[in-house]
Computed example of a mutant assay.
Amino acid sequence: MVADHDDPGPLPADPLRHHGDVETAPGLLDLAVNVQGDAPPRWLRDRLAAALDDLAAYPTAAHDAAAREAVAVRHARSVDDVLVLAGSAEGFAMLPRLRPALAAVVHPGFTEPEAALRDAGVPVARVLTDADDGHRLDPAAVPTDADLVVVGNPTNPTGVLHPADTLRALARPGRTLVVDEAFADAVPGEPESLAAAAGVPGLLVLRSLTKTWALAGLRAGYALGAPELLARLAVGRPHWPVGTLVLEAVRACSEPAALAAAADAAAQLADRRATQAAALAAVPGVHVAPGVAPYLLLTLPAGTGPAVRDRLRARGIAVRRGDTFPGLGPDHVRVAVRAPHVAARLADALRDALADVTREAAA
Rank of each mutant, 00 (worst) to 15 (best):
P143A: 05
A101L: 07
A353H: 08
R42E: 07
A171E: 02
V292E: 10
A231Q: 07
L48R: 14
V286A: 02
E248V: 09
D310F: 03
A198K: 01
A49H: 14
F325T: 09
R175H: 00
L204G: 15
A361H: 08
G329Y: 02
D119K: 12
H341Q: 12
P100I: 04
A266K: 09
D271W: 03
P163H: 03
T176H: 11
R77W: 00
D264I: 14
V235P: 11
D180P: 06
R345F: 00
A355G: 13
A270D: 03
P241F: 15
A50C: 03
L170Q: 06
V246H: 06
A314D: 01
P191I: 01
R219A: 06
P40A: 12
T210M: 12
L148C: 08
T244K: 05
E248M: 14
E181C: 00
V71W: 06
T358D: 13
T166L: 12
P163D: 00
H332Y: 00
A314Q: 01
A231P: 09
D53P: 03
G202Q: 06
D185T: 13
N156L: 15
H18D: 13
V160T: 11
D138C: 06
A258C: 12
G322Y: 01
A50I: 02
V333Y: 10
A277M: 10
P139V: 12
D352Q: 13
